[in-house]
Design a protein around this nucleic acid. Structure first.
Length: 153
DNA sequence: GCCAACGTTGGC
DNA sequence: GCCAACGTTGGC
């Protein structure tokens, strides 16, 4: 293993935006209710780097960069009845959902839209540009990550 | 274990 | 509003 792994995580800006993260500094990436996405978080390590992607907005795209600073944290929202993320099938004895803690690194100097990403990469290279892809957490190959980093700086 | 029906995400 | 791509659920 050499160096950090790279990931991309989506968030709807009206739910939690790059501005919110900049203000908070660190945050729990809670509320993930998809096993594949959760399992990707379980594969993360401290120091892994993450592209922050704004989804379900106009236009969607990469808006910032962050870093993993905490692992295997039980997602507290699964126990909160008033939360939209409440999961009645989960229990304190057998929690179903966990997450990572992330730290703000920087806001993209140049916004990199999904349409631009589709021009730069194909579905095989970057899972994000795959038509109909619904995964909110996506691994990014180092080679691809370096190119994206150059584009947003 | 199969599979149809249904639900969700999210771009367009 | 449409629809592609899955994931989940439940009957059998």
């Amino acid at each position: 293993m050499t160096g950090p792994n790279y990931w991309l995580m989506k968030s709807e800006p009206n739910a939690y935006s790059i501005e919110d993260l900049k203000k908070d500094g660190v945050t729990l990436w809670d509320g993930i209710r998809n096993y594949q996405a959760r399992n990707f978080m379980r594969r993360m390590n401290i120091g892994d780097k993450i592209f922050f992607y704004h989804s379900n907005c106009k236009p969607p795209g990469i808006v910032g960069f962050m870093e993993v600073v905490g692992l295997n944290i039980i997602d507290p929202t699964q126990f909160k009845k008033e939360s939209v993320y409440y999961d009645p099938k989960s229990s304190h004895e057998k929690p179903r959902w966990d997450c990572v803690k992330v730290k703000y690194l920087f806001k993209a100097e140049k916004f990199l839209s999904l349409s631009e990403l589709k021009i730069l990469f194909n579905e095989k290279e970057l899972l994000l540009v795959k038509k109909g892809n619904r995964l909110s957490i996506i691994p990014v190959e180092m080679k691809i990550a370096k190119l994206i980093l150059e584009k947003i700086k």
